[in-house]
Amino acid sequence: MKIKSLSKIVLFTAIVGLLGACGQLIPPSTPTTFFRVTQSPIMTKEIVAPALSAKNIRLGVGPVQIPGYADRPQIVSEGENGQLIVDDLNHWAEPLQDNLERVMVSNLGAMLGAERVYPFPTSFHPDRESLQVAIEIREMIKQKDGKVRLLVSWNVKRMLDNSLLVRGSANFVSNDIAVTYGAYANSISAMLMHLSKKILRSIEPKI
């Protein structure tokens, strides 16, 4: 009996030691890092289209469409020969489409007046001063050279009769290389600021 008990103790000790050694060999898991696109702080109360601001125009922003490859939690960047690199450890903090739409509403609201800009669709009775801004982001990526590209088009319609008011497009490429994903998100934030200005300036001559 003593021999059997001693054997059990030796076996148990060996198992505990083996488990401890395995624990030392397995490194701790790398945590996922989350990013988001934000409104630029310098947008506050900036007026870029004075004639438009003087009118009683209301803007409904949406939909904001994004490329299929970008419509995922992971951040995607460009590789060689058309390859896309999906980073499983660096994610957007929320659905990217929702994030971009909210930033565009905030940007346009900062320039035109927050009470006059809202997500579209929404429940209200439109009049002739009510406009819809639909945005299509065709490319949004960190290129293989490290620079950030945002290719976007938009159209503006009168909500009352769905008549087309203006079409526009823009191609933004950063001057600086985005070394980190934080820098990538900041570049997109800055580009959305410039996009918001372009959209308002494209509407102003048509009103």
Rank of each mutant, 00 (worst) to 15 (best):
residue 2 K to V: 12
residue 2 K to R: 15
residue 5 S to C: 06
residue 6 L to R: 11
residue 6 L to I: 14
residue 7 S to D: 05
residue 7 S to C: 14
residue 8 K to R: 10
residue 9 I to E: 03
residue 9 I to K: 09
residue 11 L to V: 11
residue 11 L to T: 10
residue 12 F to V: 13
residue 22 C to P: 00
residue 23 G to F: 09
residue 23 G to P: 05
residue 26 I to E: 02
residue 28 P to H: 03
residue 29 S to Q: 15
residue 29 S to T: 13
residue 31 P to E: 02
residue 32 T to Q: 10
residue 34 F to V: 02
residue 36 R to M: 14
residue 36 R to S: 15
residue 36 R to T: 15
residue 40 S to V: 11
residue 46 E to I: 12
residue 48 V to D: 01
residue 51 A to M: 02
residue 53 S to N: 14
residue 53 S to R: 12
residue 55 K to P: 06
residue 55 K to H: 13
residue 55 K to W: 00
residue 59 L to S: 10
residue 60 G to V: 05
residue 60 G to W: 09
residue 61 V to H: 07
residue 63 P to Q: 00
residue 63 P to R: 07
residue 68 G to L: 08
residue 72 R to N: 01
residue 73 P to W: 07
residue 75 I to G: 03
residue 75 I to T: 03
residue 75 I to M: 11
residue 76 V to Y: 02
residue 77 S to I: 15
residue 83 Q to Y: 03
residue 85 I to A: 01
residue 92 W to Q: 05
residue 93 A to N: 10
residue 93 A to M: 05
residue 94 E to Y: 11
residue 94 E to G: 01
residue 95 P to D: 09
residue 99 N to T: 08
residue 101 E to T: 14
residue 104 M to Y: 09
residue 107 N to V: 08
residue 107 N to M: 04
residue 110 A to Q: 14
residue 111 M to S: 15
residue 111 M to I: 00
residue 113 G to I: 06
residue 114 A to P: 00
residue 115 E to G: 09
residue 115 E to L: 03
residue 115 E to N: 14
residue 117 V to E: 01
residue 117 V to K: 11
residue 118 Y to C: 00
residue 122 T to S: 15
residue 127 D to E: 12
residue 127 D to N: 15
residue 131 L to Q: 07
residue 131 L to T: 08
residue 133 V to D: 04
residue 134 A to N: 08
residue 135 I to N: 03
residue 136 E to R: 10
residue 140 M to K: 08
residue 141 I to C: 10
residue 141 I to F: 06
residue 142 K to V: 07
residue 142 K to R: 15
residue 144 K to Y: 05
residue 144 K to G: 01
residue 144 K to D: 06
residue 147 K to L: 06
residue 147 K to V: 07
residue 150 L to H: 04
residue 150 L to Q: 00
residue 155 N to I: 01
residue 155 N to S: 12
residue 156 V to W: 05
residue 157 K to M: 02
residue 157 K to H: 08
residue 157 K to A: 04
residue 159 M to S: 05
residue 160 L to V: 11
residue 162 N to L: 12
residue 162 N to S: 15
residue 162 N to T: 05
residue 164 L to E: 12
residue 165 L to P: 12
residue 168 G to R: 06
residue 174 S to H: 07
residue 174 S to F: 06
residue 178 A to I: 04
residue 183 A to Y: 01
residue 184 Y to P: 02
residue 185 A to F: 08
residue 188 I to G: 04
residue 190 A to T: 07
residue 191 M to L: 00
residue 192 L to D: 00
residue 193 M to S: 04
residue 195 L to R: 03
residue 196 S to I: 04
residue 197 K to Y: 08
residue 198 K to H: 12
residue 199 I to E: 07
residue 199 I to P: 10
residue 200 L to Q: 02
residue 200 L to A: 03
residue 201 R to H: 00
residue 203 I to W: 02
residue 204 E to Y: 07
residue 205 P to G: 09
residue 205 P to L: 10
residue 206 K to D: 00
residue 206 K to I: 07
residue 207 I to R: 01
